[in-house]
């Protein structure tokens, strides 16, 4: 599960999602449910978030996740996706 594998490495990165919530990624599971700490939002627009410090967001409700490009290893990401594609097409790499 590439996405899961990918996002696992991004714990502590700043994310945003649908309503534009920015926070520190605390954990993520295989459904890409995410848990954010130190949450910040546009309080003027969403006053009900004023008191929210941490959130748990159901993965299926997230539209975008913005990531810090510096924390993404694109070459590795390409490799990983190729590997997964190979594995799912039956041409599986046995070793590391």
């Amino acid at each position: 599960m590439l996405f899961f594998s990918f996002f696992k490495t991004l714990v502590d990165q700043e994310l945003k999602n649908d309503v534009k919530i920015t926070g520190t990624l605390r954990s993520i599971d295989q459904y890409l449910n995410i848990k954010l700490d130190n949450v910040q939002t546009d309080v003027a627009k969403y006053p009900h978030f004023v008191a929210v410090r941490s959130v748990f967001i159901r993965g299926s409700t997230i539209r975008y996740i913005h990531l810090n490009p510096n924390s993404v290893d694109t070459n590795l990401l390409q490799d990983a996706s190729r590997r997964e594609a190979m594995a799912s097409s039956g041409d599986k790499i046995v070793g590391r």
């Binding site: 990983a80 590997r83 997964e84």
Partner: peptide, 8 residues
């Protein structure tokens, strides 16, 4: 290494 390659 196939399913969690990136992370590993």
């Amino acid at each position: 290494y196939n399913e969690d390659f990136y992370c590993q």
